[in-house]
Simulated scan of single mutants.
Amino acid sequence: MRGTLAAMNLAVPLFLQSQCHNAALGFRTPAVVAANRALVDFVKSIGGIALNMGDGIIHSWLNELVVPDTVVVGGDSHTRVPTALSFPLGSGGVAEAAATGVTEITVPDSVLVVLKGNFRRGVTVRDLVNYIPYKAKKLFGKNVFEGAIMEFRRIGEPFDMIDVFEMTNASAERSAAAAYFEQSPEAVAAHIESRSLPMIEKLIESGCDNNGVLADRARVLRDYVENPRKARADGDAAYAAVLEIDLGEIDQPYVACPHTPDNVKPLDEIAGTPAQFGFVGSCMSGEKDFAAFERITRGVEKLPVEVWIAAPTRLIERDLERAQILRALENRGARVEISGCSLCMGNQERVKGEKNVLTTSTRNFKGRMGDEASVYLVSAQLEAVAVLNG
C-alpha cells in the first residue's frame, strides 16, 4: 500500500490510519514503536489522518467521521459503519481507492432484515445481534447473509446510534459483504451534532488535523445536520431473502457459544456454565455498555471473576473517567487496559489457561483470545450478572 500511495496525492477527502491492533503497553518494543512512528509520519506526509497507539479502534473513530450515504472502504473486515455503505478490502484495494478515488467492487445481492416492535425487559441489542443468525438458520437452513449486503430496516422507534453500529458491525461475523441501516435522518443528524462534531473538534484541538482535512469533514457534517437526508431502497427492490423479527419474540438473552459467532443458543440452554473471565471492550462496545457493567456490579467490594476493561477510543475513555466508571471498576479489581483492540484481537494480550470467557467483543474463534479459552459473546448486562454469580 505504501508503494502505491507514495507516488500520488490522495484522491479521497479522508484517509484514516490507526494503531489499534498493537497498542498494548507491554508489547511496545523499540522495533514496534519505530515501525508505528514511521507509519504515522508516512500517512501524514500524503495528507492522511494518523492516530497513535492508545488513541483507540479505527472502526469506532470511523463511525463518527463518515459522511452519511457515502461509500467507504477499509483494510479490515470490521469496516462496517452504520450510515454509509462500507466495504472491507485488502490493502491493495484500499491503496487504489485512496490514490485514484475509485475502486472496483462487485455489488452482490441484498438480504433485508426488518425489525419491528420493542424489546422485552432484560433483552438488549447484543441479544438481537446473536438472535439474527439463530432465527435465520432456523428459517433458511443456512447462512443467507454470506457474501450479501445486509440491509436493516427499523419499523418503530429509532435505535441509538451505538446500537445501530453494533448491528452493522456484526455483519462481519455473518460473512456479509457489507451492511447498511436505514436509520431516521433526524436521528443521524442528532447523533452527528451531539457526538461526532464535538469529537472532531477535540481531535482538531489535540493536533490531529492535517491541512484542514478534519475541519473540512466537520463542515460537511454540519451541512448534513442542517439538511438531513436519507438513502432509501426502491419500493420494488428485490432481495435474496427477507428476515422479519418482532423484537418482542426474543424472550431471553441469546449467547454466541464457542467456537463461532453462529453457534447461538438461548440462555436457558447453557445456564450453569461457569463464568471464569470477563472482558468489556472492542469496537462492538459503547459508553453505555461500560456504564451498565459498572451499575450492575455496584456494591461488590471485589469482583469474584477476573475482568479486563478496554475503552474503544481515548475520548470514550476520558468520558468514562469523568463519570468515575473506570475508577469504580478498578477499585473492584478490574484491570483497565489502554484504548484499543486488546483481548478482542488476541495478537498481544491473551487469556491464559483453560477458562470460560464472557466478552462483549466480536469473535470467539478457537485460539483467538487465548490458546485454551472458550469464548462466549454476550451483552455487558449478562456478563455483569454472570461475573457476580460465577
Results as ranks from 00 to 15, higher is better:
residue 26 G to L: 10
residue 121 R to Y: 05
residue 221 L to W: 14
residue 52 N to Y: 12
residue 129 V to L: 04
residue 120 R to I: 05
residue 98 A to Q: 10
residue 281 G to I: 08
residue 299 G to L: 14
residue 190 A to H: 11
residue 385 V to Y: 10
residue 57 I to C: 15
residue 373 A to H: 10
residue 94 V to I: 12
residue 260 T to P: 09
residue 140 F to S: 03
residue 163 D to V: 01
residue 300 V to Q: 14
residue 306 E to Y: 07
residue 340 G to L: 13
residue 117 G to F: 07
residue 287 E to W: 09
residue 191 H to S: 05
residue 124 T to P: 02
residue 241 A to Y: 04
residue 249 E to R: 00
residue 2 R to E: 15
residue 79 T to L: 00
residue 153 R to W: 03
residue 11 A to F: 00
residue 375 V to H: 11
residue 26 G to V: 09
residue 34 A to N: 12
residue 350 R to G: 02
residue 203 L to E: 01
residue 68 P to F: 10
residue 171 S to W: 03
residue 221 L to E: 03
residue 74 G to P: 07
residue 200 I to P: 05
residue 372 E to G: 02
residue 55 D to Q: 06
residue 326 L to D: 08
residue 126 R to C: 06
residue 371 D to V: 09
residue 261 P to S: 12
residue 360 T to M: 06
residue 29 T to R: 09
residue 111 V to A: 00
residue 266 P to S: 06
residue 126 R to T: 08
residue 211 N to K: 11
residue 254 Y to V: 01
residue 315 L to K: 01
residue 335 R to P: 01
residue 96 E to P: 01
residue 86 S to V: 01
residue 381 Q to Y: 02
residue 223 D to H: 10
residue 142 K to N: 09
residue 217 R to S: 10
residue 368 R to F: 09
residue 185 P to S: 03
residue 265 K to Y: 08
residue 299 G to M: 14
residue 108 P to I: 00
residue 87 F to S: 01
residue 133 P to F: 07
residue 107 V to M: 10
residue 44 K to V: 14
residue 53 M to Y: 07
residue 107 V to W: 05
residue 99 A to G: 15
residue 45 S to M: 13
residue 345 M to I: 11
residue 314 R to K: 13
residue 348 Q to F: 15
residue 364 N to Y: 13
residue 39 L to T: 14
residue 339 S to Y: 10
residue 174 R to V: 00
residue 194 S to W: 03
residue 274 P to M: 06
residue 290 F to E: 01
residue 181 F to V: 00
residue 98 A to V: 04
residue 284 M to R: 07
residue 48 G to D: 12
residue 345 M to K: 12
residue 74 G to M: 02
residue 77 S to F: 02
residue 199 M to C: 05
residue 277 F to Y: 14
residue 31 A to N: 11
residue 200 I to Q: 05
residue 19 Q to Y: 08
residue 257 C to S: 15
residue 93 G to D: 04
residue 377 L to C: 09
residue 46 I to N: 14
